[in-house]
Write a protein that binds this DNA or RNA. Sequence first.
DNA 1: AGATATATATCTATTAGTAGGTAGGCAAAT
DNA 2: ATTTGCCTACCTACTAATAGATATATATCT
Lengths: 184, 184
Amino acid sequence: MNTRAHIIQLADTLIRDKGYNAFSYHDIAKTIGIKPASIHYHFPVKSNLGVAVIEKQIDRLFAVIEKYKSKSAVERLDKFLSIYTAIQKDNKICLVGSLATDFNTLDEQVREKLKTFSELMLDWVSDFLEEGRSTELFEFEGSSRTKAIMIVTNMLAIVQLSRLTNEQDFDTVKNSIKQDLIKK
Amino acid sequence: MNTRAHIIQLADTLIRDKGYNAFSYHDIAKTIGIKPASIHYHFPVKSNLGVAVIEKQIDRLFAVIEKYKSKSAVERLDKFLSIYTAIQKDNKICLVGSLATDFNTLDEQVREKLKTFSELMLDWVSDFLEEGRSTELFEFEGSSRTKAIMIVTNMLAIVQLSRLTNEQDFDTVKNSIKQDLIKK
DNA sequence: AGATATATATCTATTAGTAGGTAGGCAAAT
DNA sequence: ATTTGCCTACCTACTAATAGATATATATCT
């Protein structure tokens, strides 16, 4: 892997493991095997790296959205849930949740990029919920955006909360979302 | 207010504003008007302060639980929601959410205290949900603990997420929880 | 009552370490 | 010959934490 991509990947992992303000260029440098100052060649200031991490996640979500474009609403829901399942298995948390916690310490550019990412995610979830309801796969009351927020907040928070309680709580939430949504 | 209590209160606010790793003894010292070293007299190491912050929140929640002991399940739900409403209005986040994000950087003592706090909160919510269902005020499927987790994750995450989206999303979630729960 | 001891709460000064960031050099690839 | 990608060396600022001095109460003993 090229160094730049490697730095982004490690930063992403560190942010979702320890939080934005708890990782340093040193952490990344020692893992890659270069000097901290060399990271500055690729990302002059830390917020540049923060923005790059979010941009990469946006790209990845875009790719998922494209890939699942013509799949059923249930398949798209399962894909959404599987993304968080992977996060939870890795003892990490969602990027949005991590950076939202540190929001008041972030640069304007990082904040704006983060807003773009969260909107993209909410729009995607709203879309497949709406479609699932119109095809009578799903059943729920209120707007699809409201339901999307309810589901996204469940997943965003359970990856955080299950660090304190236990792993099973994650499955409980996942199953509860599906059971609540799928038309009987 | 005595200095010790003042320090705890400021630390609590800072943790829920910027996160545990983004606040320093200096931040607290300059607000109170004493020197950073003086904070060490009250809390030798930072984790001592972290534990004290959680302990104070546990005490406050205990007081709420006691006060609302004999009130209706609906009143207790409203009280629970109002706690998060106050947090959101203040542009802060929930202590559990903030420290869960930084969990992998925390001392064992802080982690354990945090677990105690989250258990207390989940037990309280489970209790009034269960009682609300048995008195036919609430309607929901599955165990009361599962429902408690769903509701707590909604609130924990929406105070974080609404920093990125907009304030109305908070009210949307709050209303959605009540509407979903209250028996028609 | 007066002297003495103790506890409380702060200060100044310092340490060791880490943070993000900059300047300038150098070797290899293009 | 220039760009790329890294290096060494450095800087400033901040971090948590410690040591030791000081001032002021408060309690205890004679």
